[in-house]
Design a protein around this nucleic acid. Structure first.
Length: 319
RNA sequence: GGCGGGAUAGCUCAGUCGGUAGAGCAGAGGACUGAAAAUCCUUGUGUCCCCAGUUCAAUUCUGGGUCCUGCCA
C-alpha cells in the first residue's frame, strides 16, 4: 500500500466542479479537504467565493476556510505553512488529505515548495508605504536599476514584484532572480494531481449559470455587508472578484444586467488565467476531461499508482 | 411633417485637408517563487451603410436612397 498517494490534489478553473468531486472522494476514501483558494480563507465571502454549503461542511471536514478577517493581509507563504500543517494533521489521524482549489500559485507552492527566501513583514510594510503607489514606483525603478539590473529588467513593469525583489535584496544583498534559480523545485509529495478540463463553451455556460445562481442566492446582500466593512480598501481581500462590480450596481452606476455581464466576463478571464497556469505550471498534473464518470475516477484511485511525482520538477526559470 | 447629428473591427468610437484605416473594451496566446479571484506582456483586414457622379484614385467630395438618433411641431 506504500504505492498509495500521500495526498490528492484537485485543481482546475473556477466552476469546473472541484469541490463536488473532492467531497465525493473524501467520503469514499476517508479523506478531509484542504481548500487551496486565496479568497475562501476569509470569513464572510461565502456566496461570492462559492464556499461549500453548511451541509457539505457537516459531511466532510474542511480545512483552510474562514480563518481570517477581511482586513488581514495574506500571502502564499501563510497559506503554505497552514496547508503543510493541515496535511500533517490529517495524515496523523490516518486520513487522506485532499487539496482542492483554483489558486494555482498556492497549489504549486505546496507541491514544489517555495525557495527559502527571507521575508520580513515589517520591512515590506515600510517598502509598501514608500513605493506602492504611482509616484513611488518611478523611484523604485530608479533604485532597483542601480541595485540589481537583473531584477529590474525582469520586473520593472510589475510594481509588486519589484517591491518583493527589493525586500529580498535588502535582506540578503542578492538578486531574487539569482536566488530563485539556485535549485530546481521538485515534487515534495507523492501526490495524485488532477486538473479538471471542460470544453470551452461548456465552461463558459457553467460560469454564466453559476453567476446567476449566486446572485439569486443573495450575493448582493453579502457584498453590501462586506463593502460596509470596507472590503474595497483592504490590503488583500479587496481583490476578490465581483464585489467592486456589485458596488457599482449598488451605487446606481450600472444596471443589474450590466453587473451580471461584467461579473461573468471577469470570471471567464479568471478561468482563462487559471487554465493557462495549470496547463503550463503543473507537469505533474493529469488532465481529466469533464464530465468524467465518478466511478472511473474512483477506480483510478483504488488501483493506486496514479501519482507521477518521481520525474516531475519545474523547469529552470527563464531569464 | 420641419431642421439637425450619425452610419468605420464582436461593442463604444477616433480618423483619413481624396492614395483602401486605428484606439479602448471584448476575444485569443503567454508570463508568474511572500497581495495570485491579483499583476503584467503579446496579438487588430474590417463589403469604412447602399447606388450613382466627379477623379488617375473615393471610406473620405457631390447627389440620391435606406436605417438609427436629437430638437421643434
Amino acid at each position: 500500500m506504500s504505492d498509495q498517494p500521500e495526498i490528492i490534489v484537485i485543481a482546475g478553473p473556477t466552476a469546473s466542479g472541484k469541490s463536488e468531486l473532492a467531497l465525493r472522494i473524501a467520503q469514499d476514501f476517508n479523506g478531509e479537504i484542504i481548500s487551496a483558494d486565496s479568497m475562501q480563507l476569509y470569513r464572510g465571502l461565502d456566496i461570492g467565493t462559492a464556499k461549500p454549503s453548511a451541509e457539505e461542511l457537516f459531511k466532510v471536514k474542511h480545512h483552510l476556510l474562514n480563518l481570517f478577517d477581511i482586513d488581514q493581509k495574506l500571502d502564499v507563504y501563510i497559506f503554505l505553512k497552514l496547508a503543510e500543517a493541515a496535511i500533517i494533521d490529517i495524515r496523523r489521524r490516518g486520513k487522506l488529505p485532499i487539496v482542492a482549489g483554483g489558486t494555482g500559485f498556492y497549489i504549486r507552492s505546496l507541491l514544489y515548495g517555495l525557495n527559502e527566501l527571507p521575508g520580513d513583514p515589517v520591512l515590506r510594510a515600510g517598502l509598501d508605504r514608500q513605493y506602492d503607489h504611482d509616484a513611488g514606483f518611478e523611484k523604485l525603478k530608479e533604485l532597483m536599476q542601480k541595485l540589481d539590473s537583473a531584477d529590474y529588467e525582469r520586473w520593472h513593469k510589475h510594481r509588486r514584484k519589484l517591491i518583493r525583489a527589493l525586500e529580498v535584496f535588502k535582506l540578503t544583498g542578492k538578486s531574487i532572480t539569482e536566488l530563485q534559480t539556485l535549485n530546481t523545485p521538485r515534487m515534495r509529495y507523492r501526490a495524485t494531481v488532477w486538473s479538471l478540463a471542460w470544453e470551452r463553451d461548456e465552461l463558459k455556460r457553467r460560469i454564466a449559470t453559476r453567476t446567476a445562481a449566486m446572485l439569486e442566492a443573495g450575493w448582493i446582500a453579502e457584498a453590501a455587508e462586506a463593502i460596509s466593512q470596507g472590503i474595497l480598501n483592504t490590503p488583500t481581500a479587496r481583490q476578490v472578484l465581483g464585489y467592486s462590480i456589485i458596488n457599482e450596481y449598488l451605487d446606481g452606476k450600472i444596471s443589474y444586467e450590466r453587473m451580471q455581464e461584467e461579473i461573468i466576463t471577469s470570471t471567464w478571464q479568471l478561468a482563462r488565467r487559471q487554465l493557462t497556469w495549470f496547463r503550463n505550471q503543473h507537469p505533474e498534473a493529469e488532465t481529466i476531461a469533464m464530465p468524467t464518470d465518478y466511478s472511473v475516477l474512483a477506480a483510478k484511485l483504488k488501483n493506486g499508482a496514479t501519482h507521477r511525482q518521481a520525474e516531475c520538477f519545474l523547469g529552470q526559470l527563464k531569464k
